[in-house]
Design a protein around this nucleic acid. Structure first.
Lengths: 414, 414
DNA sequence: AGACTTTTTTCGAGCCTCGAAAAAATAGTG
DNA sequence: CACTATTTTTTCGAGGCTCGAAAAAAGTCT
């Protein structure tokens, strides 16, 4: 299947191991890196000397913790924030935001802006995006190096190569080659990612103790999205960004979904579906103008007040989500779930029926209850995920390869 | 995540590459191996000389095809059949079968036997299995080397480590540690695998042009099973053998399934479910004694004869399968499907409703129709899959590591 | 028979990792 | 305060591996 290992790959891979060990551990000593990677001390010493010489790592001068142990004290290494910059952007319903992130993952600057995503033209959309990124890049302090990667997260489906937005619920435009557009504009490698996938990546960085090998991030909002990590790997479709959890079939020939089909999970659990059931609207038709956040809050208030169609609407939503999760768990085995987004704020109304439905499925046959987390604010999570995705690219594809052999300029090899 | 690459891993990995290139290509020349692996000619020359010296590869003397091209003729290499033997066994409803396979994948000898799996005791089951394997091993020609691996396929769920049968529909016994039992008995590494997973592996070897990167193998029989290959990798659950496709929820609170839950795909598409609907039995109860093959054939005959409850039963089964596949395709994108097993013989009755249901799901939104294949005879497929699984272990874990450095005995290093 | 072509092997160079030993840096100790 | 014990980091030579170039091998073509 894959290719053999050339001799020159060896150093590249081991450099990547060291960089990623430092990114994960924060401020490890060489000894810690050696035991984390399984490589010998001499190898770590050689590689880290190279990386320091290239300006990718630095020795921490702060001497953060006085270990006060006997013997020569460990010298902590850390990522050099000035080694690179990456640009991240997130496009969600009616809002575009972008940020510059340094190599250590810290925010350098950011910008956000309202737009009417449903009606904006294709050209306006791309020019708003490129203009915002251009402002970030031109406004950066001179000390900050030129960005090495752009990652854009969108609500919707991308192709498997992460270059084209195939479809999105927030705009009528299809097949927009954002990666090509950004690369042409800024001459930096760019990818476009599904928003829920970026949430999943961010969760793993935020709390590896819970979100490590296998977990789900479910976005409850206008639509229902999912990011899935299996065996430590972000799971994506074979031809697209995949994981259209919201469009698994909950009820054959059931309620009309925004996607035009019937009985999808989203047709019961999306904002519009909950509202539709709460006001007693026919399940065969869609609310004309979408549903505002205020409308949804009003529905939630009435649902919490007591029994009635509003509470029943949330119950139906939870049942759809729960059966969907249960069917998924029949395939992949149970895993922790993070519920993210505005809809997660009403999780108290959903949880009983979600748990009840899961218990009725194959995935509910395991002894321990599935751990749930609630994260109502999705934007920071998406941005963090994009940043980690972009930085991982720089780590693996740019810095692991070693310094360019040719003429000087940027970082010299000391 | 993973460990760094030690220097000694390098040769091991590249040996593995060469072995697997030969296994895939059959009789490649060194030049072909070089281009398939991306390694240099000199490296291939050195590695293949080692492998020939160890008796793992041989130069093909037969000179099969007189290429009649100009220049020095290529020398074909092939796997040495006498390099190793593996044992495979398949346990299905009321039948146990086993075979010895040589290193090239050819059958050496086989055995099969009827048992009443529903009522056999745990001890009888394991002693039948070990006795059959013992007969295969003792009866082998003296030229044939001692087996290096045992792989057992069962209908049911195994743990993720492939060591324990957690649950099976064909026997009441649970948590049977078959791998430990076999390893203790024969002192050979053993694993236990889900039957449908082995079918999927076999399909990739049989027809890589269709079944390469992403595909499904669905077993239609008493129950409904699935093997899934994604991105060239066999997909398994995180804690178990996973992929309990038959127990995805088709109809919330629907028909009673053999598993005790309601509305599973299997509760509409398993043999017993089709029979139950065909004879107008209540969906809330189960046929007491299972359903015989003769009964099922009678149902199929009546269904083919014309409209009526029998045809409707198959229609319902197809709808359940189709929606299940469609929901799965919402997650992973469409892929070719092979329908295997006795139930596939009635595929003509199922296909229209399967296609109709898929078309109503997110997975049906792709332009090209999903390719289907029909393979009614599942046993040879399972056996082939086990053999490839066992041989892959020998390739990667035994032969790629190189000759044991210590005292002689088996293969000398020429 | 000799030229030509293609495959395979040989050989030295260049890297890389490893283990052992040395060097460095600091806490205990009398 | 000097000295020892301890731990981390670097240095250095050895051993392996792959690679490219050149040579050798084994045929076909003219």
């Amino acid at each position: 299947m894959s290719a053999g290992i050339r001799h020159d790959d060896l150093r590249r891979r081991n450099r990547a191991m060291v960089i990623s060990a430092v990114r994960r551990a924060g401020q490890p000593s060489r000894t810690e890196i050696a035991s984390a990677t399984g490589l010998s001390h001499s190898t770590i010493s050689a590689i880290s000397a190279d990386l320091i010489g290239e300006g990718i790592l630095t020795e921490t001068k702060g001497a953060g913790q006085a270990a006060a142990r006997r013997g020569r004290p460990q010298v902590a290494l850390e990522l050099n924030p000035a080694a690179a910059t990456v640009i991240v952007a997130v496009l969600t319903l009616n809002e575009l935001s972008a940020a510059a992130i340094d190599y250590s993952g810290a925010l350098v600057s950011e910008d956000r802006r309202q737009l009417t995503t449903a009606t904006i033209t294709r050209d306006e959309l791309t020019s708003e995006l490129t203009a915002m990124i251009r402002r970030l890049m031109s406004g950066r302090p001179s000390a900050q190096p030129r960005p090495l990667r752009v990652v854009l997260a969108i609500q919707g489906i991308t192709d498997a190569a992460a270059r084209v937005m195939l479809w999105s619920p927030i705009t009528p435009h299809r097949d927009v080659p954002f990666a090509d557009i950004l690369e042409r504009e800024f001459s930096i490698p760019a990818t476009i990612q599904n928003d829920c996938n970026m949430m999943a990546i961010a969760l793993r960085w935020r709390d590896p103790s819970r979100y490590l090998e296998n977990f789900l991030a479910i976005l409850l909002s206008h639509g229902i999205g999912m990011g899935l990590v299996l065996k430590g790997q972000l799971f994506s479709g074979t031809q697209s960004s995949g994981c259209e959890f919201g469009h698994m079939i909950h009820q054959p020939n059931g309620a009309l979904c925004r996607c035009g089909r019937h009985g999808c999970v989203e047709a019961y659990a999306g904002d519009y579906a909950i509202w539709r059931n709460a006001v007693g609207m026919n399940e065969a038709s869609l609310p004309e103008d979408g549903v505002s956040a205020a409308d949804m809050q009003a529905v939630a208030v009435r649902a919490r007040a007591g029994d009635g169609p509003e509470r029943e609407a949330y119950r139906k939503a939870g049942t759809a989500i729960g059966y969907g999760i249960g069917s998924l768990f029949a395939l992949i085995d149970p895993a922790p779930v993070a519920f993210v987004g505005a809809g997660a704020a009403t999780f108290d109304l959903l949880e009983p029926s979600i748990r009840k439905a899961i218990a009725e499925t194959a995935g509910g046959q395991h002894p321990d209850p599935i751990p749930f987390d609630i994260i109502p604010d999705e934007l920071p999570l998406m941005r963090e995920g994009c940043a980690m995705q972009a930085l991982a690219f720089v780590d693996l594809e740019v810095f692991a390869a070693g310094p360019a052999p040719a003429e000087g300029g940027g970082k010299a090899v000391a």
